[in-house]
Simulated scan of single mutants.
Amino acid sequence: MTKQERADYIRKRLAELYPDPPIPLDHTDAFTLLVAVLLSAQCTDVRVNQVTPALFRLGHTPAALAKEPLEKIEAIVKPCGLGPQKARAIKQLSGILLAEHEGQVPASLEALERLPGVGHKTAQVVMAQAFGVPSFPVDTHIHRLAQRWGLTSGQSVLQTERDLKRLFPKESWNKLHLQIIYYGREHCTARGCDGTVCEVCRTTHAQRKKPVKTRKA
């Protein structure tokens, strides 16, 4: 298979396996999604979904969280790891949204990336899942699988993103990035597949005999 043939097969197979992949982080609007994605850095979605109900009872709008004591926010988000940094980022970005964006999450990648605690991947997730803007956020699952599937060299997360955007049609990006995440969690796991085990690896690289070493995100 050529690289493009592999990409075409992967898109078709993942669409069969996950025709309507749900957004894994519980949220009700763009702001609660932004906070949940921020908390998910170096933390599982399951843990984030356990923590956010208490946080959003404390405040589910920028106005509400901006006026809450930092200590209260930190006490709630602590189980997600990096509690002081994440709590400070949530409180600060809430204030910025009030002061600069009329209390609304901006539908702009550049504006999102300027918010405290919001990196390129987080901003892209919000653009894709809150606003429907075609984006291809690359997390650890996608970075690992793209290398195993021979779609990128894995030199960097940004390089992986660029390579995937070239291989897949733009209209598929938002759904496909979720489909890859689910496949990576359920079939092509970090320890359960080494590039020779799961269905996609075996189909796209039928002659492969040796494990694939991947670069970390």
Rank of each mutant, 00 (worst) to 15 (best):
residue 1 M to F: 15
residue 2 T to M: 06
residue 4 Q to L: 14
residue 4 Q to S: 09
residue 10 I to P: 11
residue 14 L to I: 15
residue 15 A to V: 02
residue 23 I to E: 13
residue 23 I to P: 01
residue 25 L to H: 11
residue 28 T to M: 12
residue 30 A to G: 10
residue 30 A to M: 13
residue 30 A to F: 12
residue 31 F to H: 01
residue 32 T to Q: 09
residue 34 L to P: 02
residue 34 L to T: 10
residue 35 V to C: 06
residue 36 A to G: 14
residue 36 A to N: 03
residue 41 A to S: 13
residue 42 Q to N: 12
residue 43 C to F: 10
residue 44 T to Y: 02
residue 46 V to Q: 07
residue 47 R to T: 05
residue 50 Q to T: 11
residue 53 P to E: 04
residue 60 H to C: 14
residue 61 T to N: 08
residue 62 P to M: 13
residue 67 K to N: 06
residue 67 K to E: 07
residue 68 E to A: 15
residue 68 E to Y: 03
residue 70 L to P: 12
residue 70 L to M: 15
residue 72 K to N: 09
residue 75 A to T: 10
residue 76 I to G: 08
residue 78 K to I: 11
residue 83 G to H: 02
residue 86 K to P: 03
residue 89 A to Y: 00
residue 91 K to Y: 00
residue 93 L to F: 00
residue 94 S to C: 09
residue 98 L to S: 07
residue 99 A to M: 03
residue 101 H to N: 04
residue 101 H to M: 02
residue 103 G to R: 05
residue 103 G to Q: 06
residue 104 Q to P: 06
residue 105 V to R: 00
residue 109 L to W: 10
residue 110 E to P: 01
residue 113 E to K: 01
residue 117 G to V: 00
residue 117 G to H: 00
residue 121 K to L: 14
residue 121 K to G: 09
residue 124 Q to A: 11
residue 127 M to T: 15
residue 128 A to N: 06
residue 131 F to R: 00
residue 132 G to P: 07
residue 133 V to I: 12
residue 135 S to R: 01
residue 135 S to T: 12
residue 138 V to W: 07
residue 140 T to W: 04
residue 141 H to E: 00
residue 150 G to N: 06
residue 153 S to M: 01
residue 158 L to V: 08
residue 166 R to F: 09
residue 167 L to N: 06
residue 169 P to S: 11
residue 175 K to W: 07
residue 177 H to T: 04
residue 179 Q to V: 12
residue 181 I to S: 01
residue 182 Y to H: 09
residue 182 Y to N: 03
residue 184 G to N: 10
residue 186 E to R: 09
residue 190 A to L: 09
residue 191 R to G: 00
residue 192 G to L: 14
residue 193 C to L: 13
residue 198 C to K: 10
residue 199 E to M: 13
residue 206 A to V: 11
residue 210 K to Q: 15
residue 213 K to Q: 15
residue 214 T to N: 06
residue 214 T to C: 14
